[in-house]
Amino acid sequence: MRIVLLGPPGAGKGTQAKRIVSEYNIPHLSTGDMLRAAAQAETRIGKQVKQTIASGKLVPDPLVLAAVIERTVQEDAARGFVLDGFPRTMSQAVTFDDFLDTEGLELDHVIELQADQKALLDRITTRACEAKEGGSAVRADDNHEALKVRLDAYNEQTAPVIDYYRSRRVLRTIDGLQPVDAVTSELFRMIGAGS
């Protein structure tokens, strides 16, 4: 079962990905985690990623794709995986689909957690206040300014990816602003119906 979760920052992709992993016993593949693991393992791709990160530059699409592909062919991902927030660009989406096609595979589910930008800003502010009041660390990017930058980047880069999957008729959408358990229930229903 190969699943892609898309949605803006703060929509709950990480939370839902963890629940999918727990329910279906497939790995959660986070691009950031994959890039760090590749760099640490010092594979051929990892060495390039490590140099790029060390120089302070963003990891370019070809390296991100290489790291994702390298990770998806590992044994624990043979039964499937859940990709959280990948692909982020059209180049990543098309190239990853081409890779899957050459392997005789396809994505089983592409699910967008949809959320209104103002509601996300309110959600992040509430999350930061609750963390502070509870004595927990507040995430550095849990503020209006940082989230606005991330949302702008998402709207510019990832909106075309959503349209791409919609045009391929594989995209399904869930209201990501529902209570967490309601989102999970709808997500599992979609996954179960498509299996």
Rank of each mutant, 00 (worst) to 15 (best):
V4P: 00
L5N: 02
L5W: 03
L6Q: 01
L6R: 02
A11M: 07
K13I: 08
G14Y: 00
R19E: 06
I20C: 05
V21N: 03
S22E: 14
S22V: 11
S22L: 12
Y24W: 13
P27D: 11
D33N: 14
L35Y: 05
A38S: 14
A38I: 10
E42D: 12
E42S: 15
T43F: 04
R44M: 06
R44N: 11
I45Q: 00
G46F: 02
Q48L: 12
V49F: 00
K50D: 08
I53P: 01
A54K: 15
G56V: 02
K57L: 09
A66Q: 06
I69R: 00
E70D: 14
E70M: 04
V73G: 08
E75M: 05
D76T: 03
G80H: 14
G80P: 13
G80A: 05
V82Q: 01
D84P: 02
G85F: 02
F86H: 01
F86E: 00
R88A: 04
M90V: 14
A93Y: 01
A93P: 00
A93T: 06
T95K: 08
L100K: 05
D101H: 15
T102D: 07
G104N: 07
G104H: 11
H109A: 14
V110Y: 00
V110E: 00
L113W: 13
L113Y: 14
Q114P: 06
Q117F: 12
Q117V: 14
Q117Y: 13
K118I: 12
K118H: 14
L120H: 14
R123E: 07
R123V: 04
A128E: 05
A128P: 04
A131D: 06
A131F: 09
A131R: 13
G134W: 12
G135D: 03
R139K: 13
R139P: 04
R139F: 06
D141L: 02
D142S: 04
N143G: 03
E145Q: 12
A146P: 09
V149P: 00
R150V: 06
D152I: 02
D152T: 09
D152E: 13
A153S: 08
N155T: 03
E156H: 08
Q157R: 09
Q157V: 01
A159H: 10
V161S: 01
V161I: 09
V161K: 01
R166D: 04
R166I: 04
S167G: 07
R168M: 09
R169H: 15
V170G: 00
T173K: 08
I174R: 00
D175T: 03
D175Q: 05
D175L: 01
L177K: 07
L177E: 06
L177W: 02
A182I: 09
T184A: 06
L187W: 08
F188T: 05
F188I: 06
R189M: 04
